[in-house]
Design a protein around this nucleic acid. Sequence first.
DNA 1: GTGAAAGCGCTAACAT
DNA 2: ATGTTAGCGCTTTCAC
Lengths: 361, 361
Amino acid sequence: MPDPASPRAAADSHGVTLADVAEAARVSLATASRVFSHPQLVRESTARRVHEAAERLSFRPNLLGAKLRAQQTRILGVMLPTLENAVFAECWRGIEQAAMAEGYSLMLVTSGYEAARERERVEYLLRHRVDGLVLTVADATRSAVLDQLDAEGVPYVLAYNQAAEHGSRHSVSVDNRTSACEGVQALIAAGHRRIAVVSGAFMASDRARQRYAGYEDAMRARGLQPAPPVNLPSHIASNAIHTGARIGELMGAPDAPTAFFCTNDLLAIGLISDLKRLGLRVPRDVSVLGYDGIALGTLVEPPLATVVQPNADIGTHAVRQLLTRLHAAGERAHATITLLPHALRVTGTVAPPPKTATPLL
Amino acid sequence: MPDPASPRAAADSHGVTLADVAEAARVSLATASRVFSHPQLVRESTARRVHEAAERLSFRPNLLGAKLRAQQTRILGVMLPTLENAVFAECWRGIEQAAMAEGYSLMLVTSGYEAARERERVEYLLRHRVDGLVLTVADATRSAVLDQLDAEGVPYVLAYNQAAEHGSRHSVSVDNRTSACEGVQALIAAGHRRIAVVSGAFMASDRARQRYAGYEDAMRARGLQPAPPVNLPSHIASNAIHTGARIGELMGAPDAPTAFFCTNDLLAIGLISDLKRLGLRVPRDVSVLGYDGIALGTLVEPPLATVVQPNADIGTHAVRQLLTRLHAAGERAHATITLLPHALRVTGTVAPPPKTATPLL
DNA sequence: GTGAAAGCGCTAACAT
DNA sequence: ATGTTAGCGCTTTCAC
């Protein structure tokens, strides 16, 4: 029996098109297509023939063609500040899982907290005709990117950024202010009165500001004087040199704080090292409370006390909410602000303040 | 003057095609296209008209059309085990930077070290017609995914996996065995003789095995007896409960190790916590050496001693090497195995062993 | 149940 | 320098 219908290279799957499969299966292109997209519309025996041919030729559908035709890509764009902060890496896990479960692909870009890069990267995603976006911007209250997205009517859901209550933006986050307030209340409950706040690039981060506001709430509620935030140049305290100096200064003062509230966990871990280098013991001499609840915090000893966000869940919910929006296209449902539950993990690096009133340094 | 050429909705950029721009600029579709792809082929005044029209209509090129036509997507697929290990998050930074610099986009998927997911995710990327892949597989010595990729002739470059010397695979990594050997030699030089190895999911990771081999090399070279590896269930030591028990057992023995070599930094950080919980001080009672050189290691106190890989560089080089391969299409250049320089950071958690010969626990 | 044909947005011959 | 046209791989009316 002579080789029937031998279309081009059989080994190289690249280049095998649905037309080739159709030809090999002796059906029309339309039928071959239906076998994959609407199997119920085609006779079972035909379908089998097509599948066999596809198998034999190692056919791999070219999604580009389908997407171009369909006018929707089933790709979601994701923009996160960085993956080097575990918060976002954990969130990515949730995003990926949710997207895959719904048959959506992802394009990821990182902005490095830079507004210019935010614009460029989003434009990039948009050119790829992503159906929608999940993103975390440095500051949602003044974001060129979000304004543009709004103007163009591109569907997006914010993750971590907590949308303004009466605005039109969708977001998934914890309640930054309330949760931070509760964290600081726990510090106060442990006996602390002089509590400092350490933050990274304060003015550039809406969350940092919201968490600071929570700190103020907690302090004021107890008649305590909030201290201005200690702003570190980086979000991830990589240059411990400068940080150490700032902290040393602070701890040398007569009214040195007995506890620190850091606006993220990485900052807290860096701070703890700085304190140790200064000869201070955590939590015996100074307490430290973080924010984020990254897994790493439970790996260090003592375990990092922190305000825990459900990071993977934030990703999962953001994707689900975006997909809901996409599928309910047209219906101008008003802004959905999802506040996921936070938790307090007050152990390890938080303890009552030392009895001595004298400065420790 | 009446509104000249008013094509569809002006505000919604979605749906504005190059044809609309061409019409508005009163040129042909081809010319409009050339303005963007080959500007030198078109008169400047014409180009300006087209740009103006594009601007006015907020035209955004649909990359899908271009890609379909071009038969290459300029998208690179990236598969990493997880982003929750900072090693890969740092690597991603290098990958993204290199890809963007060359005008390539990225699709990222994570495999969670699972072979089944590896296959599924790669298939996914292939359907998107990525031009090539940068990936880290759990075990390159027996990988269904790589076999498939080889069979289909899909261009890829391994990152972290160190390709077999006389094989046909391209890889970018450090020399795992040699670098691990040097790390352990440093431990020996510090005076340690009883050195244990802690590894995650040993048999599933080629790198863990190579690093263990390096440990054996170092031990044997000094006439010391290598101990079998302590295999932890996870790569990222999340369940400190079991780990702690194993370690306690080990440290209670009369010939307890005085130093540990961990096959990655996260494991090392978890181990240090376990040791502290056992009442042991690091490095005074026990020394710990990690492997990876993640930024986090420098944030803890004492700073983690470790074998440093240039993580971002690994990503950058992998991308560049892949692009070189893609551009040199056809020429069957033989396998390029890039070994990037590693470094030793032997401070902080490594010190000479304690003088006492009696068990510490 | 199946086939023929149009078209998604773009680029690149090929003409002029 | 610019226009005409074909076609990338796929899905989907619309006929039959």
